[in-house]
Amino acid sequence: MKIAVCIKQVPGTAQVEIDPETGTLKRDGASTKMNPFDLYAIETAMRIKEAAGAELTAVTMGPPQAEAVLREAFMMGADRAVLLSDRRFGGADVLATGYTLSQGLRAAGNFDLIVCGRQTTDGDTAQVGAELAEFLGIPHVTNVCAICEIAQDAIVADIDWPLQTARCRLPFPCLITVDKNIFEPRLPSFKLKLATAGQPITRIGMDDLPDKNEKHYGLSGSPTRVKRIFPPEAKGERIVWSGNDAPADKLHQLLTAHKFLQQL
């Protein structure tokens, strides 16, 4: 069996702020890390690999530096790694990302199972997995919370719905996106770090993909445009009441004004 896990490098912190003067993002340095949700995807893929025997390939699309997350995947047990990197992939929105990943996966081999994280902490859309499945023409399910069985030709998994847990059987090839809490991600192993230090990473650029039309990638292949970014609306003026202000009275008025006492 061949499994691919899609992982992404994201900014090291979500604590970005916009400088009100210059309109630029203030980030603490250029630190990056593996998208935390993708750790669960790798762990899930590893559990399946360990249970059923499989070759695990970690795939990422990103700048050359994104190699770091592939190294981390090696340290968690991935066998192969693919870096989809090309200047012409830059500026990709969900559609172009899903498409590029689908092309990269086609170029990298025939996968029976593709595992994605639930969402990223920067893009934060939770949509790439489903778009990728559509481009590959395979079924998908999201929010997988347990793996029940790996059969010869299918996977049986539990889906966490708001009101119920549904057990589903998906034939290979298929794509799943996993919830956090499915398994506790293992820590990168120092032993594997040493063992995989020289492990080659397959680099795939646009010219290595089946579809070489550059209009389908990166910004050119992205139907959405970011028109502007700006800081969220600041909270209104803070109100402070203490002892002499009859705070209980005022709070009562406030709750009434905001219609919180309406049902009475």
């Binding site: 702020e17 902490t121 970011v226 502007r228 970014i229 969220p232």
Partner: peptide, 12 residues
């Protein structure tokens, strides 16, 4: 985006 730290205006 970024966990609510910034807002993005997007068009298609």
């Amino acid at each position: 985006a970024y966990g609510g730290n910034i807002m993005a205006h997007i068009g298609t």
